[in-house]
Design a binder for these strands. Structure first.
Ligand SMILES: [Mn+2]
Ligand SMILES: [Mn+2]
Ligand SMILES: [Mn+2]
Ligand SMILES: [Mn+2]
Lengths: 220, 220
DNA sequence: TAATATTTTTAGATCAATCTAAATATATAT
DNA sequence: ATATATATTTAGATTGATCTAAAAATATTA
């Protein structure tokens, strides 16, 4: 089935919202996610329901049907593969690629994605540490813990970020924190949740709770 | 100025039509080129005129203004750079890339194109031998002659094709004719314009007039 | 030049995607 | 449980891009 860019974006939004909360997506949540009005969302939900991509009952919120999951997953696959291309091949920095990938993900060609995947050597994670679903829609899972949940003395490698905004990523750049950086907890302040951490056994820095919550660590 | 995909396609069509004939583009010619109705074309011409991209007078046909030429040229630049990427990096064959490039050419990011150009090592020609305008819109020009205009004994290198259809390109594949192939004219038949030619001083084949007209040779 | 053919424009509709304002349903609090 | 607040849907409009059919302008031919 050939979907419009708008339809694809709605499916992706529903996928991400229900994945995070592990429940159905509300009209308002979708509107917020896509920066559009609730009325527009209702309109689109009717159309997507008509096409058999979602389960929709008035006032009840929506979930994706299997066809919708498939579409959303493929879109995420394309988005993340393009992000890898932009960073690895075109040498963009990780804070510059999301907007461009938002456009590239809608290019329609199975063959293109297969070849791109091969060209990039079948990457499993994107530049932000997010897993890239394979052609069948399967995600690689990986145990990861928000730095904010770690205790004094624990250490591990930065494998992902929760916040993908340019501002956050640029802040990390300025701290020289990137995927692969080894982080160990020196201590944490119970009062405000801020932490002193050591980076790659070299530099010691202080970060706030909010930052720590957005850094995902593979402990060990 | 940010243009829609439709607007960009119209500008490109007008550019190509007026370039070929070196005169203004008629409503019908544009409609034919874009496989749409003359009424739709008239509609769009009004909008493009409003935006100052074209010179349009009712019943007189259109030409591009400098802003329109700039947009069309940038679009062609993007299209051809992406075609090079698809062939050189993703190993598509030259008959598979046009449709995908039709989509990729509308991705909006100056930075992306600059980096893609560098990644591809600043190519001057696309996989069909068409010149790629530089960032300022300048095309590299090259003397070339349709094989059909060449005479017995003349020879040269295939540097371009006029017909870009998959069928034509696949036919050339089957003959092992590609850009760079050396072609020499053994003789030509005045009756129907067909020719006997030699390829890379190896194989001798016969081609019809219509094929010869679509092969562009750099003589010498 | 007058009749005819062709090209182009206009009129009027449709469809997707969006909006604001108003109505209705559901959730929360007193 | 009733009142109030919030969430969602409906009603009605708008915009871009398209269509068909009909009208008008231009070009061709006799
Ligand atoms: Mn992204
Ligand atoms: Mn990402
Ligand atoms: Mn092409
Ligand atoms: Mn080409």
């Amino acid at each position: 089935m050939k979907l419009s860019t708008a339809e694809e974006n709605y499916l992706k939004a529903i996928f991400k919202i229900s994945e995070k909360a592990n429940k159905s997506a509300s009209t308002n949540a979708i509107a917020r996610h896509l920066s559009t009005s609730a009325a527009s969302v209702t309109d689109m939900l009717k159309r997507l329901s008509e096409k058999g991509l979602i389960n929709y009952e008035k006032y009840k919120g929506v979930t994706l049907k299997s066809a919708g999951i498939k579409q959303a997953t493929q879109l995420i696959r394309k988005h993340r593969l393009w992000e890898v291309f932009l960073v690895k091949k075109l040498r963009f920095s990780w804070d510059q690629v999301h907007e461009i990938a938002e456009q590239l993900e809608h290019i329609e060609s199975e063959e293109l994605i297969m070849r791109l995947d091969a060209f990039l050597d079948y990457p499993k994670f994107d530049p932000h540490g997010d897993p890239i679903p394979n052609a069948d829609g399967k995600f690689t899972i990986r145990s990861q813990t928000p730095l904010s949940d770690m205790h004094k003395g624990q250490q591990g490698m930065l494998v992902g970020v929760k916040d993908h905004t340019t501002e956050f990523l640029k802040y990390l750049n300025s701290l020289n924190v990137k995927l692969g950086t080894m982080i160990s907890v020196i201590d944490s302040v119970p009062y405000d949740g801020s932490m002193n951490v050591n980076l790659d056994s070299k530099k010691e820095i202080m970060i706030t709770s909010i930052v720590a919550q957005n850094l995902l660590i593979r402990i060990g």
